[in-house]
Design a protein around this nucleic acid. Structure first.
Length: 574
RNA sequence: GUUCUUAUAGCUCAACAGGAUAGAGCAACCGCCUCCUAAGCGGUAGAUGGGGGUUCAAGUCCCUCUAGGAACACCA
């Protein structure tokens, strides 16, 4: 991937007789650019060679004099480090011609085929039916989508599944509430809102009265058994909910390849039970059927069948694993949910092992967990009614974006459309800009901030690149670029960042961490903004103008590609 | 109670799977629009929770303490 690093590694490896691959892992990129582009710390060789690191460095550099490294223009020794400076013109040539080739055949800079022949299944978003789509669902939706896009871009065959929460005791509760008070609520007018009220009310009743709770559980059992009354209500609730969710997905631009939710596995769970039974893994305990996982280091058993005969979330997830294995032959199956569910997935994966799945599938199961969205007052709860609806957040974001546009650029056409891209972009980017594990305290002013390291900043920088190209009136040609004109520090900074794009995308998949890409885009936007500020692009000599215009074009393209991989849309003006 | 997780500047986050002088944004203060969009650029000030250990080298690994968050059998 990193051509320069490889070149350096090969040469050093020759000199000190080490495997080039091993060498490559020792070479690092200094934080401080004054220490070069690549560096080899000699400390680790000290013990083996019984010499001081600076002396080793000295000797290696001595030997390297005979082995010219093409891309390196200068080598420096500082302490035990050997620092390599890549030829500036060479960097510009490498990045821009590479970009040009990909751009020309429409593949997109940074794309690759390393994922060719590999199947990735990503389970994300998965809201619960009959409950509002609130800001807690945003992270799963947005992280899942970003991973989906990046995997796809790297050549993986990717399937996105919205494993809708449309089954379980929660439905038994809703059915019970509907039975008791259905006619008191105007469900047709505001389905989700009214159903939520019913849900809150029935939950309170359940807390007081164990009998009601048991009725609810029985309702779910009846639903599983296909009793007509329950099934009809279930379908009705499901339909109104999906319609409501779709509004949010339209705003976010979310798409899924499969909408097979929990209910889809209603008739596929018996097989799970049978296999476990057959393998002697199923035990009776307190009237329920469980799988003991002590031997896997998990001291909470996995409940497969509840004491009233109905199934659990885990049973459905196990059935889903079998189904996805057969349907998609997955190399990786990712579950994007909050970390509240770590134990659940540990149990499910451990139980899947006991189902006797092939190693490949077991290894592919992976829980991609993320921190929770908390309100300043604490955890959100549908039951308590303390939630912020995602639709409200997005609409507020769009409103604020529109206000700013009216203020800064009153003559802009399509204000609505651009406000939508900017507002929604801000929300998406905000959610993807911190590492997954971090909890997030919801704050309107933070999410809807459009300044500094934000989505709109990335968009704004892109808009500037487009503005330059527009003013220029024509796209620069790579053949007109004199790479020597890009040796200044601002251009070099951009080029270095552009050079890393492919590796960054790979890192996103290795760590299942979209924030790596968000931060990258910020870095790129910053580097370009400085460049833009310090340099004139149009009106310099033709040679300089061409070179700077081309780097502008490239930067714009990469910003757009990256932002779209994150699920944002890029306006051309704002 | 057990297990997991987090702790970096006033606030929100970085630090390439141990490397060199810990980087940004917000907030504060100071500068920059006769010039390709100032949603911008430049500058000043400010930080690794406490204590041990491993290592040539620790924000990063190990132990421990403290403080938050989470999960812990019929919710999903």
């Amino acid at each position: 991937m990193d051509k320069f690093k490889k070149e350096i590694a090969v040469k050093i490896a020759q000199v000190i007789k080490l495997r080039p691959e091993e060498m490559e892992s020792y070479i690092e990129r200094p934080k401080d650019i004054s220490n070069g582009d690549y560096s080899f710390p000699c400390f680790r060789l000290a013990k083996e060679l019984k010499k001081a690191p600076p002396i080793i460095a000295q000797e290696i550099v001595e030997k390297l004099k005979d082995e010219k490294i093409e891309c390196v223009e200068r080598i420096e020794i500082i302490g035990g480090y050997i620092n390599f400076f890549v030829n500036k013109e060479e960097l510009a040539r490498e990045v821009l011609t590479n970009f040009y080739k990909k751009d020309l055949n429409g593949k997109g800079y940074g794309s690759s085929d390393i994922g060719k022949g590999k199947n990735i299944v990503i389970d994300y978003s998965a809201p619960n039916i009959a409950k509002p789509f609130h800001i807690g669902h945003l992270r799963s939706t947005v992280i899942g989508a970003a991973l989906y896009n990046v995997y796809n871009y790297l050549g993986y065959n990717t399937t996105g599944i919205n494993h809708i929460g449309d089954y379980g005791t929660q439905f038994g509760k809703l059915i019970e509430g509907y039975k008791l008070w259905g006619n008191e609520y105007k469900i047709d007018e505001d389905p989700i809102g009214e159903l939520m009220k019913i849900y809150i009310r029935i939950n309170n009743l359940c807390k007081e009265d164990e009998k009601v709770l048991n009725n609810c559980r029985d309702n779910f059992k009846k639903l599983e058994d296909g009793e007509k009354y329950c099934v009809e209500i279930w379908e009705k609730f499901k339909n109104v909910s999906l319609k409501e969710f779709q509004k949010v997905y339209n705003l976010l631009g979310s798409k899924f390849d499969s909408w097979n939710g929990e209910a889809f596995y209603g008739d596929k769970m018996q097989e799970v039970i049978d296999i476990l039974e057959e393998k002697g893994e199923l035990k009776s305990s307190q009237g329920a059927k469980i799988v003991d996982l002590e031997d896997e280091g998990i001291n909470t058993p996995c409940i497969i069948v509840k004491s009233n005969g109905s199934t659990t979330y885990a049973t459905r997830d196990l059935a889903a694993i079998l189904y996805r294995m057969r349907t998609y032959d997955f190399d990786k199956a990712l579950y994007v949910t909050s970390y509240e569910q770590v134990l659940h997935f540990k149990q499910v994966f451990a139980t899947a092992k006991k189902l006797g799945l092939k190693e490949k599938y077991i290894k592919g199961l992976q829980h991609v967990s993320f921190g929770m969205v908390l309100l300043p007052t604490g955890k959100m709860s549908t039951r308590e009614g303390t939630i912020v609806k995602l639709e409200d957040l997005l609409n507020e974001a769009i409103e604020r974006a529109k206000k700013i546009i009216t203020q800064k650029n009153p003559n802009l056409e399509n204000k609505e459309e651009i406000a939508k891209k900017v507002g929604v972009g801000a929300v998406i980017f905000n959610d993807l800009s911190a590492g997954r594990v971090k909890d997030e305290v919801f704050d309107w002013d933070v999410i809807l901030n459009f300044q500094g390291e934000t989505g709109p900043y990335v968009q704004y920088t892109y808009v500037r690149t487009q503005s330059v190209i527009n003013k220029l009136g024509k796209l620069p040609q790579i053949t007109d670029v004199n790479f020597e004109k890009l040796e200044d520090r601002y251009s070099q900074e951009i080029l270095k960042i552009l050079y890393n794009f492919g590796e960054i995308l790979e890192q996103v998949t290795v760590k299942e961490e979209p924030s790596i890409l968000s931060r990258y885009l910020i870095d790129l936007a910053k580097a370009y903004s400085s460049f833009y500020n310090e340099n004139k692009i149009i009106g310099e000599t033709e040679e300089i103008q061409n070179a700077r215009a081309y780097i502008t074009y490239t930067t714009g393209k990469v910003l757009k590609i990256g932002a779209e991989l994150l699920g944002m849309q890029m306006p051309d003006k704002m």
